[in-house]
Amino acid sequence: MILRNEIVMLEVTTDWYLTLAAILFSIGFIGMMIRKNALIMFMCIELMLNAVNLTFISASKHFGQVDGQVFVFFVLVVAAAEVVVGLAIIVSIFRKQSSASVDVLNVSRG
């Protein structure tokens, strides 16, 4: 009977969203560490940024304030700018080295 009650009362609290964001961030971090393709590493950065966005949105809902959503908006813009510059760098590196692997990058002059 108690179990049945608990199932009915299954309520999605802020903690669940935070846990999901932590898992997403961890997956992004693992990918960042185990992959060597610069493009895939970029996608992992996107995963981590999205995990942080999720915490902002859930906190915004938790506290009933709109500031968290405004901040997510800023993060989105910065992420877009970062992707534009990062991908341009990857393309220009690819032109020189004909590889997108981060392990072959051992010179910093152009």
Binding site: L20, L24, G28, G31, I34, I40, C44
Partner: peptide
Amino acid sequence: LIIIGALIVI
């Protein structure tokens, strides 16, 4: 879906 997608990514 989020977790499956993230695992596909890495």
